[in-house]
Amino acid sequence: MTQPDADPDAVTVTETGVGKFQVEVLAGGAVFLADEPPEVGGLGSGPNPYDLLASALGACTAMTLRLYAERKGWPLRRATVRVLHSRTPAAKDCFAREVTLEGALDDEQRRRLMEIADRCPVHKTLEGGSEIITVMAAPPDLAALERSGLGHMQAMEEACAD
């Protein structure tokens, strides 16, 4: 289902045609499913969009902490970030982030790492908001690809690649 001409700098999300909400996500060379839980009509075959957003915050926080600790030569053995998201119609979205720092860190190092957690790029994006630009793109001309032989030939070449 993955598109052969996918932009490596973009995240591409395509409906799978399986279930009501299931989509295939191509991001950073990884492919995974996103979906909604069964109680709202999905198959539960992957994280929902808000789980993905919370995952982005948690992943960025842990990675930023790791980078900072390594640059400082601090003994951070492991960072674990747990993120909870709540959304109510009357209030702003809220992300509650719980950071666990393992290792022989002193109080000052722990305090500084918690400050750094608030400086991770995804935290700053969520905190500041973003501009979203949406444009309509034309669907690929699959018939032209088949007529040119690119679709089937490319599939055969990929199947025969070592």
Rank of each mutant, 00 (worst) to 15 (best):
T2E: 13
T2C: 11
D5I: 04
A6C: 08
D7L: 04
P8W: 02
A10T: 06
T12D: 15
V13R: 06
V13A: 15
G17S: 08
G17V: 01
K20G: 02
F21K: 14
Q22H: 05
V23P: 00
V25Y: 05
L26P: 06
L26R: 15
V31W: 01
A34F: 03
P37F: 07
E39P: 08
E39W: 10
G41Q: 14
S45W: 04
S45I: 03
G46M: 11
G46C: 10
Y50S: 11
D51N: 13
D51I: 02
L52F: 02
A54E: 06
L57F: 12
L57K: 09
G58Y: 07
M63N: 04
L65A: 09
L67H: 12
L67Y: 08
K72G: 09
W74K: 02
P75F: 07
R77H: 10
R78Y: 08
R78P: 15
V81M: 03
V81H: 07
V81D: 10
R82P: 07
V83D: 00
V83L: 06
L84F: 06
H85S: 12
H85K: 09
P89N: 13
A91M: 09
F95W: 01
E98H: 14
V99C: 11
T100N: 07
T100F: 10
L101H: 03
E102W: 00
A104V: 05
A104P: 00
L105S: 12
D106F: 07
D107S: 01
D107M: 00
Q109V: 04
Q109I: 04
R110F: 01
R110G: 06
R110L: 02
R111Y: 02
R111P: 12
R111L: 05
R112H: 06
M114H: 01
E115A: 09
E115Q: 10
I116H: 01
I116Y: 03
D118G: 09
D118F: 05
R119C: 12
R119G: 02
C120K: 10
H123C: 06
T125H: 14
L126F: 11
L126P: 03
E127M: 13
G129Q: 07
I133N: 01
T134R: 03
V135M: 05
A137L: 08
A144Q: 10
E146F: 03
R147I: 14
S148W: 00
H152Q: 15
H152A: 10
M153Y: 06
A155K: 15
M156I: 08
E158Y: 08
A159G: 15
C160N: 03
C160M: 11
A161I: 08
